[in-house]
Design a binder for these strands. Sequence first.
DNA 1: CCACACAATTGAACGTCGTTCAATATATTA
DNA 2: TAATATATTGAACGACGTTCAATTGTGTGG
Lengths: 182, 182
Amino acid sequence: MIVAEGHRQIGEVGFARFSAREVAKRVGYSIGTIYNVFGSYDQLILAINGRTLDLWLAALERRLDGASENRLAAAIDAYFSFAIGHRHAWAALYDFRLPEGEPIPEYYQAKVTAITEVVVREIAAAIPPAHRTKAPALARSLLATVHGHCFFTLNGTFRLLGEADPLAAALDRVNDALARYR
Amino acid sequence: MIVAEGHRQIGEVGFARFSAREVAKRVGYSIGTIYNVFGSYDQLILAINGRTLDLWLAALERRLDGASENRLAAAIDAYFSFAIGHRHAWAALYDFRLPEGEPIPEYYQAKVTAITEVVVREIAAAIPPAHRTKAPALARSLLATVHGHCFFTLNGTFRLLGEADPLAAALDRVNDALARYR
DNA sequence: CCACACAATTGAACGTCGTTCAATATATTA
DNA sequence: TAATATATTGAACGACGTTCAATTGTGTGG
């Protein structure tokens, strides 16, 4: 419940204007209780970002369920759609960084891995069987590729540079890579 | 001088721990003077990030000056080298966002464009003359591609996913794209 | 039903932050 | 020098993350 309200708040005002005190006010608890439950501001943010990852994975899987042809294009579109539809929550995933040395909790790593594994599966299905072993590395790289396009879309860089169709550009790059294995 | 010290501070402690008051203390002025000069915290950050962009462009051009073959590989390597060598300052370029609606100052836009133009030039030189008109769009997209790889390198995503050579992966993706024009 | 132990919850207090602005100091001009 | 313009100051304000002694709530054994 605290996490849900935190997620709502970060979706409304963004990471920079997010505040643990405001979450406490909204859920009707005192600031002290928030700290008893999460331990610190950073852990609270991690919990909220974890919820964003859950929703992202769910949206991705929902989209892929109803897709037979062009599954990769559907996945990329779902990636963009979620980021654009939840701009602030999505941006918070990358605006926030743990202090140096602090390890990322395993529960959080697992969520990132889960999303990646969906992509690995789709990439593996999109290339000839002989190249299947390269799917994980290719998936990582194409994830970074799509991420870069998505990031430049949301932070204004693409608008500044006159890019009108970032989604198409991302899809082009993915197809460029896949063309090498055909 | 204020900007230089701010850049130094952000390079040391990162965007999250940066403070205008600390800059004031370090340069020997009061906090009020910082605000008289820059108007707001956001404008101060923009000035500091602008300096980072200046240094980045300079490093890129320096590298390309001494390269004849593999100029694109040199540019990508310079991109990564700067980001890794100035992790906090580089990350601050993307951690910071102006409030919604606030326009990015022209002086700042010009710095972003200047870096992009170097890339456009190199891409144009790397593809057959018949495709030159596509160089700007391709350059934007490949910038996003390299950015994504660089970002995942520095924020720990690639380490989490087991990617051992992100620079090589980025170069692969760029070559995948260029292969389409040969 | 009471007394006691344990857990949950509170919010005042602290130091720091961005921000403002009347007061003060310094420089320039007449 | 006197008057004007410009630069600089730092106390004050509200909000933030964080802590922790005090308080309230819950349950259990007698």
